[in-house]
């Protein structure tokens, strides 16, 4: 394992190359190019703010104001989209880049890694924009924002674990792709993205505890929107879940990887 970490450190130039090309390729051919990765989340924030704060006037918590609801929504959607997008795109990444994977010495595991990291960058851009807008609209910003990097670690481990798992299984069982996209839809509704976790029925609370995405979304809301220290229990649960997922995914990848070229 340590050997692998050292290996990925050596491959960091490759990773950089892949991430930059990935970010660029999303907007190739457009006039604004890479700047879309800033314009895009900005537009999203503006639209949500407009719809929920001006048109629908929905409140998240009683008396918290409709504007806040939009920000709550966005604060939950950014990490969720990063997780969802990473998993969806990673699943097919090894098969789609079979030409590369067949090449001796090409580290196939870099394909899910770069997708996860590139989605993370997109998410962080969105978060920075959100924080700027929060400041402009006169919200209180505290130094609990410094917890964001701490929260990134379990998020990356968790997403990466699932991405490795699905991308290597997909090489052999193509049936999992439609299953995953539908499962992600269900998962999104089971995660308090569009609603506060407080309205989740108490007797089903176990679903919230078992759901790492719920922890991630809640923790981001705690530290960005509420300015609280992250609830320790939640963070520890998330960390354990993430580490387990990470290693499961990694082991599945390592076991299946030697058989890739025969199936591609």
């Amino acid at each position: 394992m340590l050997r692998h970490i050292k290996y990925y450190f050596q491959q960091r130039y490759l990773l950089k190359l892949f991430i930059i090309n990935d970010l660029k390729s999303r907007y190739t051919g457009s006039l604004a190019g890479v700047y879309w990765s800033i314009i895009n989340p900005l537009l999203m924030i503006l639209i949500y703010t407009f719809v929920f704060a001006m048109v629908l006037k929905i409140e998240f918590h009683k008396g918290s104001g409709a504007l806040n609801f939009a920000y709550y929504l966005i604060c939950g959607m950014l990490p969720w989209t990063a997780i969802q997008d990473s998993i969806l795109r990673s699943t097919t990444s090894i098969v789609e880049n079979s030409d590369l994977v067949k090449r001796p010495r090409f580290p196939a595991s870099i394909l899910p890694i770069h997708i996860v990291l590139s989605n993370l960058i997109t998410m962080l851009i969105g978060m920075i924009l959100l924080i700027i807008i929060l400041v402009i609209t006169g919200n209180r910003i505290t130094c609990t924002l410094l917890y964001i990097p701490v929260l990134l670690i379990p998020q990356v481990l968790f997403t990466l674990g699932l991405s490795w798992m699905f991308s290597s299984i997909y090489v052999f069982f193509r049936d999992i792709q439609p299953f995953i996209s539908n499962f992600l839809l269900l998962w999104m509704f089971l995660t308090p993205v569009f609603y506060p976790s407080t309205i989740f029925p108490a007797r089903y609370e176990i679903f919230l505890i078992l759901n790492p995405a719920a922890h991630i979304v809640n923790l981001y809301r705690e530290i960005i929107m509420k300015g609280n220290h992250p609830p320790m229990l939640s963070y520890i649960t998330l960390s354990i879940q993430s580490i387990l997922t990470f290693f499961t995914g990694y082991i599945i990848y390592v076991k299946l990887q030697p058989m890739f070229t025969d199936r591609l």
């Binding site: 390729s25 880049n97 030409d99």
Partner: peptide, 14 residues
Amino acid sequence: SGFKRDFSGLDNIR
């Protein structure tokens, strides 16, 4: 094999 089709020639070399 060994190429990523959406990379430029130069990036493929790199």
